[in-house]
Structures are given as C-alpha cells and as structure tokens.
C-alpha cells in the first residue's frame, strides 16, 4: 500500500498515518521553499493542504521550484502546483488561493488549518504570518535563505517563542533570492526540513524545533543550533493590539530628481515619495516609452549591478543618453 514505508516506522504506524490524514497545513508561498514542502507533505498523505500564492511561474523559477515545468511560465503558481500535487497523491484535498496573504485574509485563512508553513521571501509577510498565528493560536514553520545560508525554526508552538522574540526589530535590507542568487538545493533542503517539522508536530515525534533556531550553511557544511528566549512582551503586544503591519517603505532623500526603480515589485524597501518611476527589469524593454529622454534619470536597483546593465543596454541599443546609474543601490538614495 502507498504509505507502507512510513507506517513501518515506530514514529508513524497505522495511528500516525491516521493523524496525518486528519491534519491540515497551509503553505504560504509556493516558491523555492513551498514547492518541496508541498511535495513531501502531499506524498506523506496529509489530509488537506492549502496553497496561497498570487504569483505566476517564471522561467527563472524552474531551477529550484521543481513542481513547475517548461510549459508553466506565465501560469498561476498555486493552480499549477495543485494539478501536479494531485498527480502525486489524489487522496489529498488541495485548496488554492490565488491572492496575496494580507492583513484582511490572514486570520480567517489560518483558522481553517492546523499548521502554517512559511514559504515567503519577505519580512512583511513573515511578521504578518507571525502575528496572525499568535491571534489564531497556530504554530508555524519558518525558513529564510540568504545565498548559501538558511535559518529554520518553529514558532508559536505550545507556548514557545515567536518570530518577534527572535527578531523584535526588522531591517530594510530585504534581499531576495532573485537579487542575490541561490542554488536550487538550498531552498530544497530548507523546504524539506520545514515539511519534516510539520510531520513531527502532527505525529508527536522527536524534538520540534521550537525555541531553537537552526542555521545551515550549504557551502561549509557547518550547522548551528541556537536557543531562542521568549519575549513575553512581544507576544502580549500582538494579543492586545492585533496584527501590527510591518511596512518597509522609505522616502527618497532628494525629491527634485527623477528616478527609475528597476527592481521587481517584491523587492524592499519600497520608495513612497518623490519622482520614482517603477518598471521592473523583466518589463523594461516593453515599457521604454514611459522613460523620459529629456531630463536626467537616475536608475537604481538593490546593489547597483542590475541598474548598470540597464543603463548600458538602454544607452547602446535604444539611444538613451540621459541615464545615470546609482552605483551603491537603493540604500544610498533613501532617507535614513
């Protein structure tokens, strides 16, 4: 039978398999982390899996998001993932939400599931998941990646610490895998470990990574396990005040100049003042007519590397002689 190899384990058995069948998990973000997590959870026979993602598949996702194929760029991630996951295990009920997780839907959605799995790539959504989990009393499995490093923990599990206990203050330096680069295996490993934490919680097996932060370095092979102290005041604040939105937005320091922001829309901090035209790199050649040619335009990205390529490309191929690269990236043009 299909679950024979895991039922053989003492930690699972027939009763454990029944627990998995009665469990439900919401996966927030069906990307580098969410894909492998979903594959293993569906394979293991979790009764109901929810997928929430507003994004579409792009070609540069395929090296790490192995639920998707060359036929999928442009299609809804959540919808495609559901099709593939049903081919893996048709016994699992799969719910699809093709919308962003927001302060308006988070609590209602979380009520429908036992455990939340964080497959997101930005601080705003991680704090949102954290706060909504505190309010709905759900545990969540966190993972984050920077280049070849990963962080993994379980928050809000059996009165354990929350994400705000680990990082009470956030940073504006939200650097995505799209911007820094990442090996496909890194989110593959982290997402799979997140699925393992979900299984452990449902089965009541082993030591759940609550109150601990696991640090993984794919290159050095050296892992660390750090103890996280609970900050009761951080948790009480959310219980009393509700979700506290984390907005990573900044003002531009010189509002007289004209800027072109070529970062993708999910890259932070977002700029909310001054004259800033936002055209993501992926759309730039289709939207050239929006870029003025008569005045100086300062082009920026996260670090100054991609914007340099854009300035060079537009100058040599499209006769833009008014573009200036912001060498140090977004951090050098915003108000501190």
């Amino acid at each position: 039978m299909r679950y024979d190899r895991q039922i053989k384990l003492d930690e699972v058995g027939v009763s454990g398999q029944e627990k998995l069948r009665n469990a439900s998990v919401l996966i927030v973000g069906v990307g580098g982390l969410g894909c492998p997590a979903a594959q293993y959870l569906v394979g293991a026979g979790i009764g109901r899996v929810g997928l929430i993602d507003h994004d579409r598949v792009s070609l540069s996702n395929l090296h790490r998001q192995l639920l998707f194929t060359e036929e999928d760029p442009g299609k809804s991630k959540a919808a495609v993932a559901k099709l593939r996951l049903q081919q893996i295990n048709s016994e699992v009920e799969i719910d699809v939400f093709e919308e962003p997780l927001s302060i308006d839907n988070a609590e209602n959605l979380f009520q429908l599931y036992d455990i939340i799995l964080d497959g997101t790539d930005n601080f705003e959504t991680k704090y949102l998941i954290n706060d909504a989990c505190i309010l709905t009393e759900k545990p969540w499995v966190y993972a984050s990646i920077y280049k070849n490093e990963g962080q993994l923990s379980v928050f809000n599990y059996q009165e354990g610490p929350s994400y705000r206990c680990l990082f009470p203050k956030t940073t504006r330096q939200n650097i995505s895998c799209e911007a820094t680069g990442v090996l496909g295996v890194t989110p593959g490993i982290l997402g799979t470990m997140q699925a393992a934490e979900v299984l452990k919680m449902i089965l009541g097996a082993g030591n759940v990574l609550s109150g601990k932060l696991k640090l993984i370095n794919i290159l050095s092979g050296q892992d660390q396990l750090l103890a996280i102290s609970k900050r009761v005041e951080e948790i009480e604040k959310i219980k009393n005040e509700g979700i506290i939105p984390v907005r990573i937005e900044c003002k531009i320091s010189d509002e007289t100049k004209f800027y072109l922001d070529i970062r993708e829309i999910f890259e932070q901090p977002r700029i909310n003042s001054g004259k800033v035209l936002q055209i993501p790199l992926s759309e730039i050649e289709d939207r050239l007519e929006e870029i003025p040619k008569q005045e100086d335009v300062l082009v920026f990205c996260q670090s100054g590397k991609r914007s340099k390529k854009v300035v060079d490309l537009l100058k040599t191929q499209f006769e833009f002689n008014n573009l200036i690269n912001v060498e140090g990236g977004v951090e050098t043009i915003i108000d501190e």
Binding site: G34, D121, F123, S144, I145, L166, F167, C177, L213, Q224
Partner: peptide, 23 residues
C-alpha cells in the same frame, strides 16, 4: 544562546545574526 545581555568570559563564542528573508 540568543541573549546578549551578558558579560563575556574567556573562550566564549559569540554569533552575529542578521535577519534575512529570502525563500
């Protein structure tokens, strides 16, 4: 131990940990 309100002793190991959010 993620608690920095301590005095250091000979041989201690101190980790500097930034938040990051890629995924």
């Amino acid at each position: 131990n993620l608690d920095s309100k301590v005095e250091l002793n000979e041989g201690d190991e101190v980790a500097f940990l930034p938040p990051f959010a890629g995924g």
